[in-house]
């Protein structure tokens, strides 16, 4: 479990334009510098936004990663709900789902 490393990568991508450009060209070359589990790596490269959410990535990082991946807002929310249906409840952090994965709150 290396949620910190996964989160750090998203923090770095959000701050560093050169890194995020390189990530868009060749994501593996960026990801290899972070100590991720296979599950985390797969979720990141998918990208499997739902699994990243369930792994406990802080929403303030995940929402920017989703935007970087070109995922529109309502789609981002739906992917998180779908992630909970597929992978179960959020495993860590302070961004757990408090409604039902079948509930669309807004957007």
């Amino acid at each position: 479990m290396s949620l910190y490393q996964l989160s750090k990568l998203m923090f770095d991508l959000n701050r560093d334009g050169d890194l995020s450009d390189r990530f868009k060209q060749d994501p593996e070359s960026v990801v290899c510098a972070y100590a991720l589990t296979e599950e985390e790596r797969g979720a990141l490269l998918g990208p499997d936004i739902g699994l990243l959410y369930v792994l406990g990535v802080n929403g303030q990082l995940l929402m920017h990663y989703a935007a970087l991946c070109g995922i529109e807002w309502s789609d981002y929310l739906q992917r998180m709900r779908d992630g909970v249906l597929v992978h179960g409840p959020v495993r860590a952090g302070i961004y757990a789902l408090t409604t039902s994965p079948h509930t669309k709150v807004a957007g």
């Binding site: 739906q78 757990a96 509930t103």
Partner: peptide
């Protein structure tokens, strides 16, 4: 508020 979660809007 519950920002950046599926509860966004709650």
């Amino acid at each position: 508020h519950w920002p950046a979660t599926p509860d966004s809007g709650r």
